[in-house]
């Protein structure tokens, strides 16, 4: 299987919301290529008839009674926010002013 190119790294970084400088890109081309080559050993195995395992426990849905429980106060919820106005989380403007 073809390994990783600089374009692949740039594309994936875009999906992952990471900004990489040129050194980091070159490093990741090599490292991801090496690691993915190692992972290619899985293609040795025929798994056509194997059901993928999503989870080790035989649990489907876990329900609870629909009652109001204790939750965090607004103060507790906001206390770690980088920016807030005691009522809302504040973020930079999303839409242009005009």
């Amino acid at each position: 299987m073809a390994k990783i190119t600089t374009e692949d790294v740039e594309y994936v970084a875009g999906l992952a919301q990471l900004i990489l400088d040129d050194d980091a890109k070159q490093r990741l081309v090599k490292e991801m290529g090496d690691i993915l080559s190692y992972m290619d050993k899985l293609s040795e195995l025929n798994t056509d008839d194997v059901e993928p395992m999503m989870h080790v426990l035989d649990i489907t849905n876990v329900y609870r009674e629909d009652v109001v429980g204790k939750s965090l106060t607004r103060e507790q919820t906001l206390k770690n926010a980088p920016k807030h106005d005691d009522e809302f989380f504040l973020v930079p403007r999303i839409l242009d002013a005009d």
Binding site: M39, L42, S43, L45, T47, V50, E51, P52, M53
Partner: peptide, 9 residues
């Protein structure tokens, strides 16, 4: 998906 299958094995 392949990894999940081998996980089952």
């Amino acid at each position: 998906l392949k990894a999940q299958k081998v996980r089952a094995l």
